[in-house]
Simulated scan of single mutants.
Amino acid sequence: MLDALQIATTVIVGLMVGVEFSVAFVINPILAALPDDSGQQARSHGGRMLGAVMPVWYIGSLVLVAVWAAAGRSQEGVGLVVTAGALLIVSVIMSLLLLVPINNRGKTWTPENRPADWKEQTNRWDRYHYVRVAVIVAAFTLLVTALS
């Protein structure tokens, strides 16, 4: 049973990392290259879509890691799992304090109502997101290492 939990947790966290990595290094650069207001409109739509899914994914991943740490507390590598959980907590805190406020504004923007500094806010979100991606990649790496 613990093996299934470990594998499911690692897969779910890995998929989350893949989505967030893709947003940072594939999707957003593509959107930035779109003409006129298309990129901003696409980011607003993406903010609405992913903004609905990612909170559940982040919290669900954290819960799974916590269950893994508790269930495997006597196993070798549990320190890695606990550290991965701490990193996921950092990513959730970063999200709530830094990224979500910008995303909540950005998902309502249209070419008619966006603020004058919308590009600066978008760039700030991107910088915070790069750090968050690094944090969750580190957490995922620890989980994979704990499996071996």
Rank of each mutant, 00 (worst) to 15 (best):
I59M: 10
T110E: 11
V78F: 00
S95M: 14
T122P: 02
F21D: 02
L2Y: 14
L143Y: 03
L87A: 12
W125F: 15
A70D: 13
I7K: 07
V144H: 01
T141M: 14
P55F: 01
R124H: 08
P55T: 04
I59D: 01
M16T: 14
S148V: 14
V17P: 01
Y130M: 13
G46Q: 01
Q40V: 11
V81S: 04
L80D: 02
I93G: 11
L143T: 01
G14C: 11
L62G: 12
S95Q: 11
V11C: 09
E76H: 07
L64G: 00
L97M: 13
G79Y: 04
L2M: 13
P115W: 13
F21L: 13
R114D: 14
N113P: 02
V53L: 15
M94R: 06
R132I: 09
V81I: 07
W118I: 01
A70Y: 13
S22P: 03
G60F: 12
R132M: 08
S22A: 14
L2V: 07
V11K: 05
V65Q: 02
A69D: 02
L80W: 02
E76K: 06
G51N: 09
M94T: 06
G18R: 00
F140Q: 05
L147F: 14
M16Y: 11
S22R: 02
L34H: 05
E20R: 02
G85S: 03
V13R: 04
V65M: 07
A52S: 10
V137T: 00
T145K: 10
T145R: 11
E20C: 09
A116N: 10
I93H: 04
A33N: 06
V67I: 14
G14V: 11
M49S: 08
E76N: 09
Q40T: 04
E112N: 12
P101V: 00
A4T: 08
M94E: 13
N103K: 02
M1Y: 06
W118V: 04
Y128I: 12
A146E: 00
V56I: 15
A138K: 07
G51R: 06
V13W: 08
A71Q: 11
H129W: 14
I136M: 12
I89N: 06
V65L: 10
L50G: 10
A66T: 09
G47R: 02
A32R: 06
R124C: 09
Q121N: 09
V131A: 15
L142A: 09
L98W: 12
W57F: 05
Q121V: 00
T141V: 15
A32M: 05
G77F: 04
P111R: 03
M54W: 08
A70V: 12
L142I: 06
G14P: 10
D3L: 12
L80Q: 11
V65Y: 03
V13M: 10
S95I: 07
T122V: 08
R73T: 11
T141R: 04
A8F: 05
W125I: 04
A33D: 10
A138F: 03
V11N: 07
D3Q: 08
P111D: 01
G46Y: 00
V131R: 05
Y58H: 12
G77L: 11
A134Q: 03
E112F: 09
D37K: 03
G106T: 02
K107N: 07
L34A: 15
L147D: 10
P55K: 04
Y128C: 14
G60V: 03
A42I: 04
I102G: 08
E76V: 10
W118K: 00
F25L: 10
